[in-house]
Design a protein around this nucleic acid. Structure first.
Length: 720
DNA sequence: GCGCCTAACCATTGA
DNA sequence: GGTTAGGCGC
């Protein structure tokens, strides 16, 4: 216990000791959020004697959960069930496994990931004879997700064993697709990511006794990265906390980067209004970055209007200034990066694993990769074609899932992989049979594989192999099973024949990840558990200690830190992202800025911001990102050939598209002026802070004064 | 009927 | 780089 406290500062200690009631901790980047959260968990167990099975600790990723579990176990010892250190989705999964039967859905449901959803939609397209080129998966998936989240009554439709889905009675094509989708997912007993949350909510509302059970069980609840919780997720923890009234949330509104997915930072901002007894602790000391990095980051995030004023500080040692490199083209940009990496390595012994290259969107990684290959620098991409969505990984997992569940999605994925002579036509034939007799595709093949139709196929082999595994899989560890499956199904040989070493390597990586999981788990890892866990995995969960440069999007980098960080592709029309700006006007630019802030604050020792001239994918000319000019000039070291002319052109371009940018207009308000803000309402200007370019305004309806940047005053404030 | 190859088109972020 | 339709050969 002692050593846990020894590492904490006074405020962090205060947070750890705040075990009763509603508590919110607002903590900027590198302030030791996770450390504090972990210490509090340990304090609850060791000092207060609370059983871990009564503490719900919601983390943002599985990786964060795994690491926290590891640290917790080190201090409290083995033998505890720390299964409630988990993500929202992981927790919902746990609840549903226990109680979904109330909703007439079996608890051996499968979790549908994006790939599965796409497969379902693809089937629907085929059945309805729709032209795929005129539509996109993304649009349909968005529509389905929107529909599900707007009205959760679909949960009852889905779980109704009588199946009251009337496909003929539809309003339009979208509605029809939606209903067929529900029918298809019901057939495989699938739950997608939205369902996990929605089912849990319906369960809690419709069956108060289930909610009560969990309320009593969970004496303490703590939530990490609370600014990225959605109102639905908040509803879940709020309801759960009603019995013991111990809810502890940690977050930073400035790091909200998931608004587009439903995150609502206002929940953290208004936490004190929601729970008037709430205690607030603010952690402003950063232990991660050099003062140079922190100052530059602060100076950028200050440009946002919608924020709780807080200024991070650090006592860390000074380093070099943040560098902005401007390249003549993409080749030049990556060349400079690779040379810098080599320089750091040669002169300071910086190893590759301590370096991260971050970007706004996956496709940017292409020219980065190219350059790294040319320079002979090893790298690992996290994200992009996501590891768990790679063809070979999905195939292997589909075999495992078919063995465990016998579902149609897995079946159609791998029945002809490797080729067994069972193509489209034969699947359609099977589909008809299955439909008529209410069988799954696998069962239909099992019944009819002796039909003359399948004479020239390897259907019999296939059925025999799968049947063998179905009968025996429980007596093997998942890793053993995987190896056996690879051999007996001929999948490994098939890849080997194709000479696809990379795919084989990926499978090896999957194998080792299973072995690690098996070694870390307290209990035996069952196949069902594994499959469920893996479908909730994220790219960040794969992060390891391989000695290679790490490439990932800023979103994937959230919550992580790296000694040396390059943020590349910092151009207008890339970062900030034009589609995001288009889609959610107003709020989006602030989120993009927070994203840039998150990217910058990942760096511990040195931070490089790079961009280059050229054109973007949609044929627009690239200009240096506005964010590069929003950071105070004296905090950046501009390197590369950035001509005055281009800066002027950029300013002109930005002003054209956003009249609040580079506005030379002087502040038109004085202290004491009454102003009106579209969101905050009426307020009085308390102070004009010319140094930082902000007004401090006390709004009538808001407890703490807010700061509003000058650059926005023209647009956002009006005299009144 | 099946599977392989190619040209053409497209790309925001993710649990 | 991935995805898709369509053509072609077995």
């Amino acid at each position: 216990m002692q050593d846990i406290f020894a590492e904490l500062n006074e405020r962090q200690k205060e947070a750890v000791m705040s075990t009763e009631g509603y508590v919110r901790v607002i903590a900027g980047p590198g302030a030791g959020k996770t450390k504090t959260l972990t210490a509090r968990y340990v304090y609850l167990v060791k000092e207060l004697g609370i059983n871990p099975s009564n503490i719900l600790c919601v983390t943002f990723t599985n990786k964060a959960a795994q690491e926290m579990k590891k640290r917790v176990r080190k201090t409290i010892g083995e033998g505890y069930d720390t299964g409630l250190i988990t993500t929202y989705h992981g927790f919902c999964c746990r609840v549903l496994k226990e109680d979904i039967n109330h909703l007439y859905y079996p608890n051996n449901f499968i979790i549908l990931d994006e790939e599965d959803q796409k497969a379902i939609i693809s089937e629907i397209y085929e059945e309805l004879n729709l032209d795929r080129r005129n539509d996109t998966y993304e649009r349909i998936l968005k529509y389905i997700s929107l529909r599900k989240n707007k009205d959760t009554s679909y949960v009852k439709l889905l779980s109704d064993p009588g199946n009251s889905l009337d496909i003929n009675n539809t309003k339009d094509l979208n509605d029809k697709i939606f209903k067929i989708y529900l029918k298809k997912q019901q057939k495989v007993y699938g739950l997608d990511f939205d369902d996990l949350i929605n089912f849990t909510i319906v369960l809690f509302i419709d069956f108060p006794e289930v909610l009560k059970k969990w309320q009593i069980r969970l004496s303490y609840i703590q939530v990490d990265e609370f600014q990225d919780s959605s109102s639905k997720e908040f509803f879940i923890v709020e309801q759960l906390s009603k019995e013991h009234e111990n809810l502890f949330v940690v977050g930073d509104p400035d790091q909200t980067i998931y608004e587009w997915r439903g995150a609502d930072p206002q929940l953290l901002v208004d936490f004190d209004k929601h729970f008037p007894s709430c205690k607030t602790i603010i952690l402003e000391q950063n232990y991660r970055s050099t003062p140079e990095i922190l100052k530059a980051s602060n100076s950028l995030i200050k440009r946002n209007r919608l924020r709780i004023e807080k200024e991070m500080f650090t006592l860390n040692k000074s380093g070099i200034k943040v560098i902005h490199y401007h390249g003549k083209d993409e080749k030049d940009e990556i060349k400079w990066i690779t040379e810098r990496i080599k320089y750091l390595n040669k002169n300071f012994g910086v190893s590759k694993k301590n370096i991260a290259i971050l970007y706004r969107a996956h496709h940017i990684s292409r020219y980065i990769e190219q350059g790294l290959i040319e320079a002979g620098i090893d790298y690992t991409i996290y994200g992009g074609v996501k590891f768990f969505q790679r063809r070979e990984i999905k195939d292997v997992l589909a075999y495992l899932r078919l063995i465990a569940y016998g579902d149609d999605l897995s079946f159609s994925r791998i029945v002809n992989q490797p080729s067994r002579g069972i193509g489209k036509q034969k699947i359609n034939y099977l589909r008809e049979k299955a439909e008529q007799e209410g069988l799954s595709l696998y069962k239909a093949l099992k019944k009819y594989h002796t039909d003359p139709v399948f004479k020239s196929t390897k259907a019999r082999d296939f059925i025999e192999t799968i049947q063998y595994f179905k009968a025996n899989y429980r007596s093997f560890a998942v890793s053993e099973l995987l190896q056996d499956v690879l051999k007996r199904t001929g999948y490994e040989e098939y890849l080997r024949k194709e000479g696809d070493q990379e795919r084989l390597d990926n499978i090896a990586e999957l194998f080792y990840s299973i072995v690690t999981l098996e070694n870390n788990n307290e209990d035996e890892l069952t196949l069902e558990d594994y499959l469920q866990q893996i479908s909730l995995y994220t790219e960040a969960d794969r992060m390891d200690e391989k000695d290679s440069v790490k490439l990932m999007t800023v979103h994937v980098a959230k919550g992580l830190e790296f000694p040396y960080v390059f943020v590349c592709g910092l151009s207008e029309n890339i970062f900030p992202n034009p589609r995001s700006l288009e889609e959610r006007k107003g709020r989006a630019l602030e989120e993009e800025r927070r994203l840039a802030y998150v990217a910058m604050t990942r760096a511990m020792k040195e931070l490089y911001l790079t961009e280059s001239e050229g054109i973007t994918g949609n044929g627009l000319k690239k200009y240096p990102s506005r964010f590069l000019f929003e950071i105070e000039e004296n905090l950046l070291d501009r390197i590369g050939n950035l001509e005055e002319e281009l800066i002027e052109e950029t300013k002109k371009y930005l002003n054209q598209n956003d009249d609040t940018f580079f506005s030379n207009e002087e502040d038109i308000f004085d202290e004491g002026d009454v102003v009106c803000h579209p969101i905050f309402g009426r307020g009085v200007i308390e102070k004009v802070d010319k140094d930082n370019g902000v007004y401090i305004i006390r709004f009538e309806n808001i407890k703490t004064p807010r700061s509003i940047s000058f650059t926005y005053q023209k647009l956002r404030l009006s005299n009144r």
